[in-house]
Design a binder for these strands. Structure first.
Lengths: 195, 195
DNA sequence: GGAAAAATTTGATCCACATCAAATTTTGTG
DNA sequence: CACAAAATTTGATGTGGATCAAATTTTTCC
């Protein structure tokens, strides 16, 4: 399927954890399906059990859910090497609460839950990769949490801007405002006073 | 050290993931140290690299950090089977940002990072346990995050009260207020209008 | 290229919750 | 027990950011 396995879009990511050309390595790639999503398309519809884990190879997606007033709240952005899946739904089998939308043309590779479970069972290296990826996201979330309460809208914007300058001019500000827990108007005013 | 391994305070927890009386099971218990902390005591001081993972056996601890104005922000509570460690510091080797304080007399068992790494390397079952524990906390945090922004102070209180009634009358309200992202006064007024 | 749609800005007003201050109740301790 | 310290409540006032309403700019796409 891929002549040179090393050239698969996910190789660089996996290689951080699993040595190439081992059994654990080779077992993975044949299990992947490739997907393309147009800008605006949904990777998975809401309220449906979700059994594929999508790795982003190209593009940016946002995770969002609907609050009690049916406003869309953006909770995460995923770029290359990120995951475009409601992780809770995928791991627990519960229905999707989060929807994932392509914000640019999006290219993903997905693996079915059963196949991933199989990898976990068969290869210690995959358990390890799973542990480390979970750890990575856990720590990222702890940091995001920290003081989302404590910081002013201004501070949250400044930190996000420093970290993710590349997203501005690529995706609409309304999603960034939502992710940062403020209205579009507040974000606009913060950016105006900057200039 | 423990005559009947099954009676160790962590047995019930570990048993969910690892079958008793296997090599992976037996390897664990001799690596633990027991600790006692008095009410108010710190499990680990801030800004010091932290190399032991503490499992709570008895009591309640809080995780907190200092914001830019040197206010203590409570970010998590740990009861029995919970972890009383700055997980980020423990896993990455970075200095502690979070401090952990015993809110009641606290009993923990701790394992050194090197020994845990050893278990991970030696036993697939431990990699698996690590993966699942990470997954569990990740999902818990995703749920906490969800809409901490979106919900009113009132809603956050109601949900927390339903989930953790046992903490009220056990620990001071100021820590709960901080965890819920509101002032002590606001929490008090919410509780007053309830009655 | 030009009209429609989407995104962004700007302005006026409002409110949930913070802040500051003090009284009251509860808890811990010599 | 007593009293000092800590916790909680209650009151008065202030404010960051929400909400509502348009105007303006940018993007999309026929």
């Amino acid at each position: 399927m891929f002549k040179a396995m090393e050239s698969h879009p996910l190789s660089a990511f996996i290689q951080q954890f699993i040595p190439p050309n081992t059994a654990a390595w080779d077992a993975f790639f044949p299990l992947l399906s490739a997907h393309q999503f147009a800008k605006g398309e949904l990777v998975a519809p809401a309220h449906v059990p979700c059994d594929r884990l999508h790795f982003v190879a190209q593009g940016v997606a946002r995770h969002f859910f609907l609050d009690q007033d049916h406003n869309e709240i953006t909770s995460w952005f995923s770029g290359p090497s990120g995951l475009a899946t409601d992780y809770r739904a995928f791991t627990t089998g519960a229905p999707n609460i989060f929807e994932i939308q392509a914000l640019t043309p999006l290219e993903t590779y997905s693996i079915h839950r059963d196949n991933l479970d199989q990898l976990y069972r068969q290869y210690k290296e995959w358990e390890r990769l799973g542990r480390i990826v979970n750890q990575f996201y856990l720590i990222a979330l702890i940091e995001r949490n920290n003081g989302m309460f404590v910081k002013t809208a201004r501070q949250r914007y400044d930190e996000f801007y420093d970290q993710h300058r590349e997203l501005f001019n690529l995706i609409p500000l309304k999603y960034i405002a939502s992710y940062l827990g403020m209205t579009l108007e507040t974000l606009s005013r913060i950016r105006a006073e900057q200039r």
